[in-house]
Design a protein around this nucleic acid. Structure first.
Lengths: 340, 340
DNA sequence: CTGAAAGCGCTAACAC
DNA sequence: GTGTTAGCGCTTTCAG
């Protein structure tokens, strides 16, 4: 930068002012400005974000802590967030918690140390009292995505309405004549119910009660949110003396695992059993049979999340935004057996 | 840091020396050291990586440019790399190229600007002459993963042997009596053959010729490496006057797409058609039927890649490492029709 | 409108 | 062994 100053015959601070853009009301002579810009271009100048950050300026880094990058849903989310962040000139620093909430908390510290301008939390972290605690004495804006609609103190939350999924699915299944509907929810490695999944489960329970369905406790199963978790849950469900005719999984990953286990059991889907999920992974369209599921507004959430985090400084008021998903009917759901 | 110095009654530079660890032979009085460490702990001191980086020290940032994070294979790779990097105290800055090689090149610049200590390239980038070019005048070590075994000038490459996959699969299929075997390769958005997939295709062609198989040109199809690409390829293959009895897909994503299209066509897998892939995604075990595929040594590659990038300063010689995958037989492959 | 100068937090010579 | 002293590249008062 000093070099540019010399070459352009001005002082280094002037160069800084020009190159920084034009934030605070410091007018510069258009002629000088052009000259400086020209020289900078010729010298292929590129600002050093480190130095900028040192001075307290923004680092243009967006920290993203994801519960599990191998979860295809979160992979899509990271993709969307990264796109949106790049569009705004930000880079994404990824922290992969590998499913452990305590790793997430460590990562937050790291990212904060890295002087990220903001931190995005993907996936539920409400089971981490320490995280919430630390959030208080943080000046970095933190926004949580996909971690349930419960407002978390100290951070804004972007979420989906977790009632419309289960309810839409119930409408669909009820309309198909199902009365024996089971639910598979997801729990973390530690065995806790995870945010969104917990809410979906609650929504299911509520609706089932309202409809007066025969829903014994065994019809609601918790499993790790993995393919094998879904498969295991399905096997347990099908081992019951009275089998459900439809299963709502709280994620597509669980649903796909269940689908696989069902076909291994020789079950016809959807002839003998309907299986539906949540998320609408890219994969959901390509399972056999294709999965009926609930599509999440990933891009919108990513946009809202990045906006909330980086702030577009126009409307930073709302601490909780709830977006709407919608049911996508494919082939894995059909009329209840004996009702066609 | 100055605060610590004051509190401990020493100079700031001494504090630096203690806190930095003990790199260059500068002995410090154990007593002083302890006192400083103690004070630092009490003051909850955390080093500022920005300032460190400014001074030319390492930033402990590892840049990772991935072709497509939504590709489950790369998601797994990022997961493995992130684990390995964190283990070594590094953080990962993620650059998602969204499938476009030209975005990758832009990202490289960004990451270099960010003063990453090294950059990892995930996926083929050989179609980017400019990238290679820019690589020359870079001081940051760059290592490429999964981009074919062709040595790239200016970077070390960690790769898998792309012959053992196709060959192992051929052994398997030939043993099952198949003589009409098709291959589906992957191309980028721009329509170029992508590194690993191109090599797998070449290996297939070579082996097919060696076996004297009836392999008309139509049996080798190129498709985008997506679920729908795989589905499209399968439909084309099955529309041929003479259909193949087995299909080798160069990735599991293609294979899963093909599986889905096949079942829509009413084809029995593996009764009427065998479909096999490459990668062994977590999902491969849960398709219907479960996919016969080639397992990639992801963790090993991640470890080797991170090691090569960050350097463990003991053995930095090899510019090209080739690891071995192995065939995993599941349910999607069976005896050739009419041969049982 | 522009220049001079003071650091941001830290490392690395170079003294003592 | 430990203190002093320069900066790294940039932003930002404070004077012209």
């Amino acid at each position: 930068m000093q070099d540019i100053a010399d070459a352009a015959g001005v002082s280094q601070s002037t160069v800084s002012r020009v190159l920084t853009g034009a934030p605070n009301a410091i007018p510069i002579n258009p002629t000088t400005r052009e000259r400086i810009l020209e020289v900078a271009r010729q010298m292929r100048y590129r600002p050093n974000p480190l130095a900028r950050g040192l001075r307290g300026a923004r680092t243009m880094l967006l920290g993203v802590i994801v519960r599990e990058i191998t979860d295809p849903f979160f992979a899509s989310a990271v993709d969307a967030i990264s796109t949106e962040a790049n569009r705004r000139g930000y880079n994404v620093v990824l922290g992969d918690a590998h499913g452990h909430a305590d790793e997430a908390i460590a990562l937050r510290t790291v990212l904060e140390t890295r002087h990220c301008d903001a931190i995005l939390l993907l996936g539920d972290t409400s089971d981490q009292p320490r995280l919430i605690e630390e959030l208080r004495d943080t000046n970095v804006p933190v926004v949580g995505l996909w971690q349930g609609t419960a407002p978390m103190p100290g951070m804004s939350v972007i979420s989906v309405d977790n009632k419309v999924g289960p309810n839409g699915l119930m409408d669909h299944l009820l309309g198909l004549g199902h009365r024996k509907i089971a639910f598979v929810g997801g729990v973390s490695v530690e065995g806790r119910l995870i945010g969104d999944m917990g809410e979906r489960r609650a929504a299911f329970l509520e609706r089932a009660a309202a409809e007066g369905l025969e829903a014994p406790d065994e019809f609601v199963r918790d499993a790790r949110n993995t393919l094998s978790g879904g498969a295991g849950a399905l096997r347990e469900l099908m081992a019951l003396p009275e089998r459900p005719t439809a299963i709502i999984a709280s994620t597509d990953v669980l649903a796909i695992g269940a689908l696989h286990a069902a076909s291994h059991l020789g079950l016809q889907i959807p002839g003998q059993l309907s299986i539906v999920g949540h998320d609408d992974l890219p994969m959901a369209e390509y399972t056999t049979p294709a999965l009926t599921t609930v599509r999440m507004p990933i891009a919108e959430m990513a946009a809202a999340g990045v906006k909330a985090a980086i702030g577009d400084s126009s409307s930073e008021t709302k601490a909780l935004q709830v977006l709407m998903p919608r049911v996508v009917v494919r082939e894995s759901s059909g009329r209840a057996p004996g009702r066609d």
